[in-house]
Design a protein around this nucleic acid. Structure first.
Length: 570
RNA sequence: CGGGAUGUGGCUCAGCCUGGUAGAGUACUCGCUUCGGGAGCGAGGGGUCGGAGGUUCAAAUCCUCUCAUCCCGACCA
């Protein structure tokens, strides 16, 4: 490709709204332009990256036995009503009506459509298993789109859906996808980790997220330093402490704690470590029910875990008025004692505390020597807290958990029969008995993966593409466009690179060297071949490795081999 | 959805407080010089000052409404 015939509108300064590295660089390198909040156009350079990425995904999906299809972006409401999600999906689902006043949505995912497709034709266990995938534009009307294409509203996603006759088969389909995803992200050259994850709104029985490790990631993952266990903090299991602390349960004792509301204040005032306090929080579920959550003073409630424990879709903290309504006590001085009309969920760590401190359910007072068996026997225990670095690993002996930030680029779910039952996608088994198909679904955020690659691979000058998805393998940079020998040598090198099957771009603009160097560094071609008057006089051209910055001078005939060497090192 | 901020040429921003009819850098066009890390000089083109309404002799500037964009929060009592 010739730069004079290819559109790469680079910018010296990033638009003010860009706040993460990948967004700044994709804008500056002329890969994307914003049309509206969370909605982007992809320019030719960006599309090259996306296509290379998609092709790797396709190859690995096909290898794993999945078949590509293409489903409609616009979906009728009936299917969503049938699956039960029309009412639960909320405002993220973009809904609209056609001219006949029929309701539709712009698909945020395609379980309904694929399930409908399959149930129409598949009748027998002999037709199974099946796995269909597509690469398609989705729309999720996010509350707050941000970070460019990493959290856009309109985005491209590879989604796949498997249908099996047996549970064992479904597990095999799931495993095949886990292997395929590992192959995909490995080929993309990303530093990633597959972690156990919450199934969220999609539903289902178990799932893994594929996380690209980057400090700018929106998710936190916990991993064991010793064994292979890793999970999203929303999911990570926390080992419940085994034995109740020793010691006698002492009589309850009310203490005055004027204006001491927070854990720090109470802990400091009573000179008692936060670990000896029980924090009492009031939550409201999406159905309007109040729940009281208890954790140790030094621990934090994880909303997702709490929601799962009380079988709600979502929980939010109650405000002060709601707190009073639920407990008849002022916030800041809450405790579980005497709360009988509301459900109490306590974290496992609270169970073993002996003689702890809680609020007294009245202003300016707390209670000492609280013990759950005696003082709040109506509590149920569950794992509802956030993991802390240093917590013991739940899966191995002696392992300790660490925390890292990650960008969720892929997510695989074993769905089970949630959709097939709701939508009656059934088949006849070998005994002639009707059974619901067992499903799995598997997504990869295409644009987000490209952005994650940049988050993980850039410097202050620009992007450093993994060679597998670089828009071009190598840039040929003639420095003196008015020097015939330079132009001729550069053109020959360019032609040779193409002939040898590489994907080069030649910067044939009549521009100064500095401009070309800076653009090349910004766009991030893995290798640059610099053809200039001076080195050419000695029969040499220069090859620069974008990642290491190393330059070597070689004869024009050795360029292809040298470029290959550079790319291989990526 | 709550709070905060910002909308001025393609991009980054000044001007607004104190009203007098729009500016800089960069980018773009042309000429000359220059030419291995975002050149210099000269000459140009490009702006309904987000939109609507109001106040005023006069509005980018003051007032009201509205739209858009961004940030923070929606988690620890």
């Amino acid at each position: 490709m010739r730069l004079t015939r290819f559109y790469i509108p680079t910018l010296k300064e990033a638009p003010a709204e860009a706040d993460v590295a990948s967004q700044k660089m994709m804008m500056r390198a002329g890969m994307i332009r914003k049309l509206a909040a969370g909605i982007y156009s992809t320019l030719p350079l960006g599309l090259r990256v996306i296509r290379k990425l998609e092709n790797i995904i396709r190859e690995e999906m096909n290898r794993a036995g999945a078949m590509e299809v293409f489903m409609p972006a616009v979906q009728p409401s009936e299917l969503w009503v049938e699956s039960g999600r029309w009412d639960v999906y909320g405002k993220e689902l973009l809904r609209f009506r056609d001219r006949h006043d029929r309701e539709f949505c712009f698909g945020p995912t395609h379980e309904e459509v694929i399930t409908d497709l399959v149930r129409r034709d598949v009748r027998s266990y002999r037709d199974l298993p099946l796995n269909f995938y597509q690469i398609q534009t989705k729309f999720r009307d996010e509350i707050r789109p941000r970070f460019g294409v990493m959290r856009g509203r309109e985005f491209s996603m590879k989604d796949a859906y498997s249908f099996d006759a047996t549970d064992d088969g479904a597990n095999k389909s799931y495993e095949a996808m886990r292997v395929a995803y590992t192959a995909i992200f490995t080929r993309l050259g990303l530093n990633f980790r597959a972690v156990e994850a919450d199934t969220g709104q999609i539903g289902g029985s178990f799932s893994h997220e594929f996380m690209v490790l980057a400090d700018s990631g929106e998710d936190t993952i916990a991993y064991c330093g010793k064994c292979e266990y890793a999970a999203n903090v929303e999911k990570v299991e926390i080992k419940a402490p085994a034995d109740v602390e020793s010691g006698e349960a002492l009589p309850l004792e009310e203490v005055s704690t004027p204006k001491m509301k927070t854990i720090e204040e109470v802990s400091g005032f009573l000179k008692i470590a936060p670990e000896r306090l029980i924090k009492t929080l009031v939550y409201k579920t999406d159905t309007g029910e109040f729940v009281v959550a208890l954790t140790r003073g030094d621990h934090d409630v994880n909303n997702v875990k709490l929601a799962r424990a009380v079988k709600a879709n979502e929980v939010t903290m109650a405000d002060d008025a709601e707190v009073f309504k639920a407990t008849n006590a002022p916030s800041g001085f809450l405790g579980p004692i005497g709360l009988t009309s509301v459900k109490i969920i306590a974290d496992n760590a609270v169970r073993v505390l002996r003689n702890a401190v809680t609020g007294a359910n009245k202003k300016d007072a707390h209670v000492r020597n609280v013990n759950h068996e005696r003082d709040f026997p109506n509590a149920t225990f569950a794992d509802i807290r956030n993991v802390k670095a240093g917590d013991p690993c739940p899966r191995c002996a002696g392992g300790v958990m660490g925390l890292a930030r990650g960008i969720e680029v892929g997510h695989i779910f074993k769905l089970g029969t949630k959709y097939s039952e709701a939508m009656r996608a059934t088949f006849l088994d070998s005994e002639g008995k009707e059974q619901p198909m067992i499903m799995g679904c598997y997504g990869i955020g295409v644009g987000r993966t490209a952005a994650a690659a940049i988050e993980q691979n850039h410097d202050d000058k620009g992007i450093i593409w993994p060679s597998s998805i670089a828009p071009f393998d190598v840039a040929v940079i003639p420095l003196n466009m008015d020097d015939e020998a330079v132009v001729k040598a550069a053109e020959e090198v360019y032609a040779e690179l193409m002939k040898e099957g590489l994907d080069p771009i030649i910067d044939d603009r009549d521009a100064r060297g500095g401009v070309k160097f800076n653009d090349a560094d910004l766009v991030g071609y893995p290798a640059q071949v610099v053809v200039g008057k001076k080195s050419l006089a000695e029969g040499k051209v220069e090859i620069k490795n974008r990642k290491t910055g190393e330059r070597v001078s070689v004869a024009p005939g050795e360029v292809v081999a040298e470029v290959r060497k550079v790319i291989a090192g990526y």
